[in-house]
């Protein structure tokens, strides 16, 4: 026999379920933290290597960074496959994420070509590439922050746009790396930890 219930109860169920689904797509912030720490360490290490005149090793740092990024991307894909629920926002952000990575690798490829063509100017070409990276990061953060209505990511986006302009102004690779580390800390790490705390709080209650 069917269970009967009142119209008020119907509305309560609808409201409860929509609220449950809405809370479900809260992010853990892991992706931001992983990317943030990878970029922060690579940028800081690059600035230190320039300072101690071991610039020759910088290529290794960024190759390792590229490899770890690729592995983390595969790991994230795998984690997403095992999610019990998928929201429309998540689906859209996944597409943006793929577009972002393709654009990132396109800039890396273009920079390598430019650095090989203008060998005398390779340091400046690479510093400029970081400026373009940060424009792209900022755009990605702005879209992501707006989609999940998370202000710290939008603030991070503004900081990253400012960092891009600063990198174009300073031109010097070492300072570009210092700016990069600061921008990553504000744009990735702080919002990442905030998201993680919010996620923990929401899953405790």
């Amino acid at each position: 026999m069917e269970e009967t219930f009142s119209k008020q109860e119907s509305l309560k169920i609808i409201e409860q379920m929509i609220k449950t689904a809405k809370n479900e797509h809260r992010e853990k912030g892991e992706g931001w933290l992983l990317w943030g720490w990878l970029l922060f360490i690579a940028s800081t290490l690059s600035a230190v290597l320039v300072q101690v005149r071991l610039s020759g090793y910088i290529g290794w740092v960024w190759t390792a960074m590229g490899l770890l990024t690729f592995i983390s991307f595969l790991w994230e894909l795998r984690a997403k496959k095992t999610q019990a629920v998928k929201t429309y926002v998540e689906e859209l952000l996944e597409k943006f994420s793929t577009g972002f990575l393709i654009s990132l690798f396109a800039i890396i490829a273009a920079t390598s070509i430019a650095a090989n063509v203008n060998k005398d100017d390779s340091g400046q070409s690479i510093a400029f590439a970081f400026g373009y990276f940060f424009i792209l990061y900022a755009f990605w953060m702005y879209i992501h922050g707006s989609a999940i209505r998370f202000k710290p990511l939008i603030i991070g986006a503004i900081v990253n746009w400012a960092a891009a302009i600063a990198i174009f102004i300073v031109k010097d690779f070492k300072y570009a790396m210092i700016i990069s580390a600061v921008a990553v800390a504000v744009g990735y790490l702080i919002p990442g930890y905030m998201l993680r705390n919010l996620y923990k709080k929401s899953h405790k209650s």
């Binding site: 219930f5 169920i13 609808i14 379920m17 019990a84 629920v85 998928k86 689906e91």
Partner: peptide
């Protein structure tokens, strides 16, 4: 107009897709 069916539809309306175990837990 049955509590569980209404709950399932309301839940699915807000997401793209959901696993059986997720629906079971949330309802």
């Amino acid at each position: 107009h049955a509590p569980l069916r209404l709950a399932v539809i309301s839940l699915l309306l807000s997401v793209k897709e959901a696993e059986f175990t997720f629906i079971k837990e949330k309802t």
